[in-house]
């Protein structure tokens, strides 16, 4: 992928690393940061590969493994859990026929869980890529999945 425009957006300083990684991942059709990009970013910021790779490995929003075009992150925090997120997760697993951390064969959706999304008044909540959704029911999930599938085509 073309990452030069992203690199040029920021000063050449290590403190922009996470910003750069976010932008790359958001722009990547598989929502991840590929190894050759790690090498490029490391060279650009004059740090060693492990300093980039290790940061990806620490932050749960960043991924060094290919994922789907849309990453579904269901809140599994104590509140959403209380308000029924585990049912939602089970529903998504069955509907998408994937386990947590897996991607649908068409490469469209990856199912993940996340800690508190700060949408507790509208629990249970989830994010699809950068969009937040709350007060979810299985019916709403159906509609959302359909919309995302459609918008992709």
């Amino acid at each position: 992928m073309e990452i030069d425009p992203i690199l040029q957006k920021y000063p050449k300083s290590r403190d922009y690393l996470i910003e750069i990684l976010h932008d790359i991942q958001n722009a990547h059709p598989q929502s991840y940061i590929p190894p050759e990009v790690v090498t490029r970013v490391a060279k650009h910021l004059n740090v060693k590969q492990a300093q980039v790779y290790g940061v990806i490995g620490y932050y749960s929003m960043l991924s060094a493994k290919p994922r789907g075009r849309y990453v579904i992150r269901v809140c599994a925090s104590p509140i959403c859990n209380l308000m029924g997120s585990s049912n939602l997760i089970d529903y998504l697993k069955e509907k998408l026929k994937v386990d947590i951390g897996q991607t649908t064969p068409d490469g469209l959706f990856t199912l993940e869980t996340t800690e508190c999304l700060g949408n507790c008044a509208a629990a249970p909540a989830m994010m699809i890529n950068q969009e937040m959704y709350g007060s979810l029911t299985t019916g709403m999930v159906d509609i959302l999945l359909e919309q995302y599938s459609k918008s992709h085509k």
Binding site: D15, I18, E19, H22, Y59, S60, M61, E115
Partner: peptide, 8 residues
């Protein structure tokens, strides 16, 4: 702005 990336 600096974005976090998923760490409590």
């Amino acid at each position: 702005i600096r974005r976090g990336a998923g760490s409590y």
